[in-house]
């Protein structure tokens, strides 16, 4: 369903789409069944002259069956959904596969700024590349991100990756993603953060290794200028 509207551009996007579809079919079945029975009953037992209602308490075992059996089946469906939901959750949020590279993402009213490790591959060193409102990553590399917020709660969301994580002031939240498709995608802030919440977007550029290397090379030489850019971009 979701892939119909958005590319599935990260390694776990398909898993979320699959779980979504699974739930769709399972609850869709129950929903349609309930509605069908519901409308049929309204039609079948509409008021007719000379026909009285029946006296059914619903307390007899033979009558209660009509509730308890569906009850049990719904519970069963719940268990199936649970298994897939938790599995998906575990893969995306609970486990942390080893990183190829780590980036820092900072949300503040109302812009995103990013810090890439630069040529030496380490965050927090002089050659870090800092950008505002644009994050450049390389396809098929596993990224860890360190998510921070300067002022209020923001939320880092990349719909094409099916990735979402709130940024909490006072904490550094670690997560991961792995782009599997090149292109430029939206980054949105999905937690209300003041009057600029509606424009707090950014772009995520997934590049081939060559493009990315070129981009790094270009920006690490001008890193002094880039360092200044976060404040300029506000």
């Amino acid at each position: 369903m979701i892939e119909h509207f958005l590319p599935a551009a990260s390694s776990f996007a398909h898993e979320i789409d699959f779980t979504f579809d699974l739930i769709f079919w399972l609850v869709g079945f129950w929903f349609l069944l309930s509605e069908a029975v519901f409308f049929w009953l309204i039609f079948r037992f509409r008021k007719k002259d000379g026909v009285r209602g029946q006296y059914i308490t619903g307390e007899l075992k033979s009558e209660k069956r009509w509730i308890t059996i569906p009850h049990g089946l719904v519970l069963l469906c719940d268990v199936v959904i649970l298994i897939f939901a938790i599995q998906t959750w575990y893969h995306i949020k609970q486990q942390l596969p080893p990183a190829d590279e780590t980036v820092r993402i900072v949300g503040q009213q109302w812009a995103w700024s990013f810090e890439l490790p630069g040529p030496d591959g380490k965050l927090g060193t002089a050659d870090d590349i800092r950008t505002v409102d644009e994050l450049h990553v390389q396809v098929n590399r596993l990224y860890h991100f360190k998510l921070e917020a300067r002022d209020v709660v923001h939320s880092f969301s990349v719909p094409a990756f099916r990735l979402k994580q709130d940024a909490m002031p006072g904490r550094v939240i670690t997560g991961w993603f792995k782009p599997i498709q090149t292109g430029t995608f939206d980054i949105q802030c999905t937690q209300i953060c003041g009057i600029g919440h509606g424009i707090m977007g950014a772009r995520l550029v997934v590049e081939t290794p060559e493009q990315h290397a070129a981009w790094i090379a270009e920006h690490s030489t001008t890193s002094v200028a880039a360092v200044a850019s976060p404040s300029a971009g506000e």
């Binding site: 979320i16 979504f20 999905t190």
Partner: peptide, 9 residues
Amino acid sequence: SSGTDIYLH
């Protein structure tokens, strides 16, 4: 379902 809520939240 926590897995899908990552996207739908």
